[in-house]
Amino acid sequence: MLRWINRLTQNGKFHPMWIVLATSAIAVVAAMIAVPAIYEGAKEPKKPSPVAVKQIPAAANLPEPDSGQHDLKPAPAGVQAVHFTPPAESEMPSGEFGDTVKLGRNIFVHTQTYAKGFVGNGLNCVNCHLDAGRKADATPLWAAYVKFPAYRDKNKKVNSYEDRLAGCFRFSMNGTAPDYNSKEMIALTTYSYWLAKGAPTGVELAGRGYPKLENPPLAPDTTRGATVYQANCALCHGADGLGTKVNGQYAFPPLWGSDSFNAGAGMHSVKNAAAFIKANMPLGKGNSLSLQEAWDVAQFVDTHDRPADPRGK
């Protein structure tokens, strides 16, 4: 083989680069065949496979926020992201394991009731992780679960999944994380594990984090943002941004003020907030705002007063 190549090269008819190109082409084709084949094997009989390979542009390309709370690494452009659908709620198992899955769901959706002692604001986890942590493009739990433990630049060490949950308790919920062995942490981890049932570990799943958001044509502007806010957001979140309460609980969560996320939270990065808002707000009308409107309104939201970053930043 080598001698043959040498001969061709010396004849000036062949450049070794062709070998590299041909080999990579074969590898790509092989991967496209092999990846679905692996998950076909894992699926339960007679059920449609939840896993299929889909070409999506640069999945979960999340930037570093000002706070450094998150660190989802941008995937290289055009990378193969694996598509995954979490099990339906009706498939939740029974028994003690199932009870813990259900408790995890309850803590996630009704954090104010099931984990009140660890929360320092008026929010529930589900307010930012829509559909009980299931919705793609709203930082779904199943996509997060399979990517931990992970090295994080924030604290320069390998972080466990519990470390990541703790981050959202501390910043997004402006509270204190429950002990890693507490029933709350175990239940949240169990719920995430169950949602990720059948997903490959260590793989970037399509829909993780938020879809990559281009930079806006104009620099984000608070004044324009205020106009976007009054027209599209005030109906639910209130003209004052403080949310709407029914019977003492927030039906529409506060976007700023003492009951909202603190200044160290991922949502306090304008880029994260813009990406979340573009894909998910107004509720039920995701992707209806223009790119510019999403950035402007995110800038407007994040310039308001809120609880301080507990790290004193």
């Binding site: 829509l130 299931r134 639910c236 709407t244 029914v246 529409f252 509720l283």
Partner: peptide
């Protein structure tokens, strides 16, 4: 709701037990 189609729960806007917000 029906999030496969991007539809939130009716009660997300109409209140916890449909009693309105």
């Amino acid at each position: 709701g029906n999030w496969d189609k991007g539809m939130p729960a009716c009660f997300a806007c109409h209140g916890e037990n449909g009693a309105g917000i």
